[in-house]
Design a protein around this nucleic acid. Structure first.
Lengths: 365, 365
DNA sequence: TTTAGCACTCATTAGATGGTAGTGCTAATA
DNA sequence: TATTAGCACTACCATCTAATGAGTGCTAAA
């Protein structure tokens, strides 16, 4: 052992949380670790003591660095692929690194322009904007990117329209404040005139405009009992109920999956298979996106930190986007654990910001 | 040379079309060629004379087969990767093989069930059905699959609806006979009341129901001149014009791209890059899909037969789908030239058939 | 016309080898 | 006491070699 590489090793060892451990490295060890990580992010190759000695700002001999590295390895920040290889950061190291990133780095002007350029395209619907955003993000990061479409439940109603399509089918159009248009067909047993549908729609509009779908679904049950004595109204409410229920479960758009396959980190066939499966099984990724909506800020899942086993070899950078009323959905990147966190985090953040602004402009408030 | 391997070589050589050449192989040469192709489709490895001698039904010594192979190679049906390797079929060979497939092979019951199962899901919109179809096809074939959404121009109008969203924005909803709902926002300079919009919509509905968008756009110009003396009506028609113009250029859904990357035929990094680019550049694939709509039946592009250079290493199997009124779009598979044509063709054909039936059911006629 | 036999080609594989990038340990040094 | 130089050691890697084997083309015999 080489002295107090750990400033508060005792505290760290006796403490229960992993967070405490993040604090225990002394300054020089931190420097070495960060440098290893940044070098590795660049080169994707194990970093040796000699290499590091040169690239490091401070004057330290390879031998000294070896000592530090040895300790870092013992603490689980570094591993060796084999005895005579350099060191590679572990998930734990990346977590430490990311935690230590204090000031979010600024996005290069060139990238800013690219993002803004896309956002100013005219005449796009919300879904189109999302598709553009996720495509752009994939292009900028060269990883796979995902975005969830605005959640129906949080959307506020701008307008509902009922259109008679045939004797037993009615087309329901829901326009939300966020500018999303959803349509679906409902089947009815009794035939209604378009006039009747118009008055039902008008009734529903008066009653529910600006309410969230969530609220509407709850209140609607109430309304049902209140008006049930009146036959026509009862029918109207029954229709309304049908119109608002079981909106599509929320979708997600993926882009740039194929980028991952070019990445040197995923070239083993086994990890490839599992990645493909992961993206086919959208529901699991959807869960992660949903979770990232709950709290503000950028969410970072490194390696096994996400709950989806097939993505344990990846890191995910997720953040939410919103209009001026609500958080609508989230957008993010799926890449190798050795991604350039500084860059990716800031690009995701900036993209989400511009996306939010663009969507807010299109919102009806 | 070993005699008349070519039945009508003279005719073939003097003839101009490639089609004639397809007819010139004698029976035994055909047998050998087909067997090589089928073996290669299975194994993806060069086929040697010994192997073939065993797997071939007829009794022929390796030496004899070598002679035949040598001739086939000279005619451009086979190539060798190197001197001491077995033979591999060329694009020309696949073309010959596909042309000789007379009776479409039947789809296995198990696959039929899978396809039917998906098609019976309730309450889906057209886009959802297409997404399911292309996903299923990717799953069944293990290649990349594409489908184009129904062309706006051929769709017939079922209903148009104009909804006032704000002072300067109107939401246009177009419902087509095929059951596709399209929405878009148009910007106007003068504010209109919803009542006015309703009467405009009603006017447009009366006038244009059952007409194709194509027709409407053409006729609308006429209408404009007829009614221009009347101020309100002029406004109405102007609105209608805006509503029908520049519908989205038609989109396409892709699924299973990643399947291609597992395929042993695309494991060189160079061909991979070009494939990724190809799928990013949707417009080119869209062209091929569009072309496949024009004529009935399954369209097969082998290797360089398609006009998109980056897909020259692939074969494409495309066919159209329709409702009972119109051809709506097309669906197909992109895979390696050495795909199992028999199987893929029949699966694509069957899927398109079921897709057509499903969409016809959802149509408003 | 078909086939057996043989010489030849060339990719692939397995071993052997030297070089290299890295480590850990120890003893000398500041 | 912390740092560093030196050295033995390890394991990967590229290169070379030889052996293997699948395949061909050609020729002569059946």
């Amino acid at each position: 052992m080489h002295g107090d590489l750990l400033l508060r090793k005792k505290a760290a060892v006796t403490g229960k949380s992993g967070l405490l451990e993040d604090m225990v490295l002394n300054e020089r060890a931190q420097l070495v670790l960060n440098s290893i990580i940044e070098n590795y992010i660049q080169s994707s190759e194990p970093i040796g003591s000699r290499t590091l000695s040169k690239s490091l700002g401070v004057q330290l001999s390879p031998a000294t660095i070896r000592n530090i590295m040895s300790d870092l390895a013992e603490m689980g920040f570094l591993i060796q692929t084999h005895t005579s290889a350099g060191r590679v950061p572990t998930d734990k190291a990346y977590r430490f690194y990311v935690n230590s990133l204090s000031t979010p780095s600024s996005v290069p002007e060139q990238i800013k322009q690219k993002i803004t350029l896309v956002s100013t395209e005219q005449g796009m619907q919300v879904e189109g904007i999302l598709a553009e955003a996720v495509h752009l993000l994939a292009d900028l990061t060269k990883f796979a990117c995902v975005v969830s479409t605005p959640k129906a439940s949080v959307s506020r109603l701008q307008r509902i329209e009922l259109i008679k399509i045939s004797e037993d089918r009615i087309l329901v159009i829901l326009v939300t404040k966020a500018g999303v248009v959803r349509d679906k067909i409902i089947f009815v047993t009794d035939s209604h005139t378009q006039d009747f549908l118009n008055s039902v729609a008008s009734f529903l509009n008066d009653k529910f405009k600006n309410h969230s779908m969530q609220e509407i679904r709850e209140k609607n049950g109430l309304a049902y009992s209140v008006y049930s004595y009146h036959d026509l109204l009862a029918q109207a409410v029954r229709l309304g109920k049908k119109a608002f229920e079981l909106n599509n479960p929320g979708e997600m758009l993926i882009d740039g999956q194929m980028n991952l396959l070019l990445d040197p980190h995923f070239d083993e066939k086994s990890s490839l298979r599992s990645l493909i499966d992961a993206f086919n099984q959208k529901s699991e990724i959807m869960k992660i996106l949903d979770d990232s909506m709950r709290e503000k800020g950028v969410h970072i899942f490194i390696g096994i930190e996400n709950d989806f086993e097939q993505l344990h070899g990846c890191s995910l950078i997720m953040t939410s986007y919103r209009n001026n009323q609500n958080v609508l959905g989230s957008i993010g990147v799926v890449g190798p654990t050795s991604m350039d966190y500084k860059k990716i985090i800031s690009v995701v953040e900036y993209t989400a910001k511009i996306l939010s602004e663009t969507i807010t402009e299109r919102s009806y408030d």
